[in-house]
Design a protein around this nucleic acid. Sequence first.
DNA 1: CCCGTTAATTATCTTTTGTTAATTCTGCCA
DNA 2: TGGCAGAATTAACAAAAGATAATTAACGGG
Lengths: 197, 197
Amino acid sequence: MLDPDKTAFYIHLFKGIDPADLPGLISATQQRQLEPGDVYIREGENSPRLAYIKEGLIRCYHINEKGIESTVLLRWEEQIVASYDSILLGKPSRFTYHALEATSIVEVNYDVIQKLLANKPVFEQARYQFVLDMLAQSLERIESFVLQTPEERYLQLIQDKPDLLQRVSDKHLATLLGITPVSLSRIRKRITSRYSR
Amino acid sequence: MLDPDKTAFYIHLFKGIDPADLPGLISATQQRQLEPGDVYIREGENSPRLAYIKEGLIRCYHINEKGIESTVLLRWEEQIVASYDSILLGKPSRFTYHALEATSIVEVNYDVIQKLLANKPVFEQARYQFVLDMLAQSLERIESFVLQTPEERYLQLIQDKPDLLQRVSDKHLATLLGITPVSLSRIRKRITSRYSR
DNA sequence: CCCGTTAATTATCTTTTGTTAATTCTGCCA
DNA sequence: TGGCAGAATTAACAAAAGATAATTAACGGG
């Protein structure tokens, strides 16, 4: 019998999928539970894993030569997470991905589904849509760096995804915005003092 | 008879294309020449135009409410340029695209080729590859904002694409890096004074 | 060849950020 | 509940960036 969670995952991911393809896909799929702090993909790994986040939060970060850690991106429920170095470029990940919360994911081996679904229009369509969404998101983020100040980026962030404030520590949010935790703390102070005036 | 330039364009873009598709595509294609300063896509336009740059340089920029102009991206020869607001999201462009140099392009209406090539694997493949490349580039740029200082971004830029220094004015490069022209001038001074010491 | 326009640099001052370290806050567990 | 570790804030100073304006450089047209 087909796992209902996995079935739902694929129906969601590949709208209009041929039911005949489901069993093959599902056997290439597993569910996993990550605890806070668990590493999902380690720097240096060349992992073709691709996961849909059912619940939870995953942080992708990098540690530079001076030992300074920067958050490159955050992914949360209903989003897809993968090492884009590996998936897109076929090279080892320069980043580490780890769970910030208890996180449940549905995971596939991208190489396997790539083979299983080669030349299937539904897959091509979904894959295209997925990359397209990520591109749109990325371009928006680039714009925010080019066009906005750190303070504006922070205000934008808490407007777009307010629950991140409760879920992610300031130091991680700061580096996500391209600034230091100290600077973020000052920005918050400026904002509140501006309101209370 | 088929235009050899346009034929080459499609062969390049859609490797393995069915020759039977060429005439239809080519009739949806035109060559254009832009002079320095010519606007290619104006802010507010919802333009499905997509162009391959044979020669030249196109700048995408935005003017904010304070009248400050920022370069969002540059595209040059052998790259593809389009309003991603329109192509990806189907909405009017928030940016203006204009030529910085005499620029010759091969242009198609994206909606038309989308229809012409619906469900053709070669097209799906090319389209996917195109978005994938842009995504990889975008992610790299995001990283540069998160992980690098303005000075490091500048050094990276002149290493990756040194001819931009001759081809693009400093004020445009500055805003591309997310800083002001005055600040870029100081960065260059710092760098040279560091070398001469 | 001069003039006028624009770009680039420099100067001055203000604001913001980075750095480092000290201090306070918070949550957790022994 | 006392104490400890990590997070956040604050402080103090240095470095960098923004804003504005003045000066210099570069360039193209008349």
